[in-house]
């Protein structure tokens, strides 16, 4: 297993190098002249040239790639063309909002989803099965940005209960929590549906398995079988899904952040795209991608710990 973990971890390096190359070539191709954006239309040619030199924009592409990689290695993601702030500090400001949103919504969704799925499988006759079906249908039918719009329509416009925009006043925990409710729900509904259905199915499979029959034959009580033995087996598929989900939400809460105007990473990237602020786009995507890659890595490794059977090559 150790060998697998090392191999899996080392594989991240060439992948990230590839990511950097793609990112660089993407923004290289991006239309818009940074100098004229930064300095305005009335800049003198001397000023433009000076700036281009400072940002190495006058050099050939491979040289610029080299400078870029060097900067990234030093933790320098460049400077925003618009605001002049360091990209790294912009990201550092945005990231906590995204992380809070991702972890809250997915954490609650995972808890509800796994509980619902398990109950639905253990008590087959109870109406919980119906609840699972409704959630999974909702999860399929209503993508997160549609859910966000509908929730906003319902709870901010029709029944003005909850705040529509922003992330709350810094330091005011209640305000922050209140501002979190709608975005987290919009993101979480789909995950509840998916995880509850996944867990219900795998739990049903597990409860029918031979080793559960063995435990019954040795008089292990039914409740212990369901919640101690079977749950661990049944939860395995959900772990990967949750790991993928964290990564996805860290980089992909774009729509919800835009709709609810939360100053998170997704909003930072999209706003930068609108403004053609390419160092911010580049840095934002890089950080989102790194988070995604490491979330996947952690999911894979934790999977290896939970399921000792996995064969690795």
């Amino acid at each position: 297993m150790l060998k697998y973990i090392i191999k899996r971890t080392l594989w991240v390096i060439p992948t990230l190098v590839g990511v950097l190359i793609i990112l660089f070539s993407l923004t290289y191709l991006m239309p818009g002249d940074p100098a004229s954006i930064m300095l305005g239309p009335r800049a003198t040619p001397e000023l433009v040239e000076d700036l281009n030199k400072r940002m190495h924009l006058d050099r050939a592409m491979p040289v610029r790639l080299g400078y870029y990689l060097l900067g990234v290695a030093k933790g320098d993601l460049g400077t925003s063309v618009w605001s002049g702030h360091k990209v790294s500090s912009l990201i550092a400001d945005a990231l906590p909002h995204t992380i809070l949103l991702a972890i809250t919504s997915l954490g609650i969704a995972a808890l509800i989803g796994i509980l619902l799925g398990t109950f639905a499988a253990v008590r087959r006759e109870s109406p919980i099965g119906g609840v699972v079906t409704i959630f999974s249908l909702l999860g399929v039918a209503v993508p997160d940005f549609v859910a966000a719009l509908l929730l906003m329509l319902l709870f901010c416009v029709q029944i003005p209960l909850l705040p529509a925009l922003g992330a709350g006043v810094e330091g005011d925990l209640v305000d922050i929590a209140v501002h979190l409710i709608l975005p987290a729900t919009a993101l979480g509904i789909g995950w509840v549906g998916y995880l509850s259905r996944l867990n219900q199915e795998s739990m049903l499979d597990v409860l029918d398995s031979d080793y559960i029959r063995t435990a019954r034959a040795f008089a292990v009580p039914k409740r212990a079988i369901a919640y101690r033995y079977a749950l661990k087996n049944a939860v395995i598929p959900s772990i990967t899904v949750i790991g993928l989900g964290v990564g996805k939400l860290l980089g992909g809460a774009v729509f919800v952040e835009i709709i609810f105007s939360r100053p998170g990473l997704g909003k930072l990237i999209v706003d930068a795209v609108y403004a053609r602020d390419f160092p911010v786009v580049q840095g934002g995507i890089l950080v989102a991608t790194i988070l995604f890659v490491f979330a996947n890595l952690i999911a894979d490794i934790s999977y290896a710990f939970v399921d000792p059977r996995i064969q690795y090559d």
Binding site: D210, Y211, I212, T214, Y229, K232, P308
Partner: peptide, 8 residues
């Protein structure tokens, strides 16, 4: 093969 729980 299946009579024992694989994850314990």
């Amino acid at each position: 093969q299946n009579a024992l729980n694989p994850v314990f």
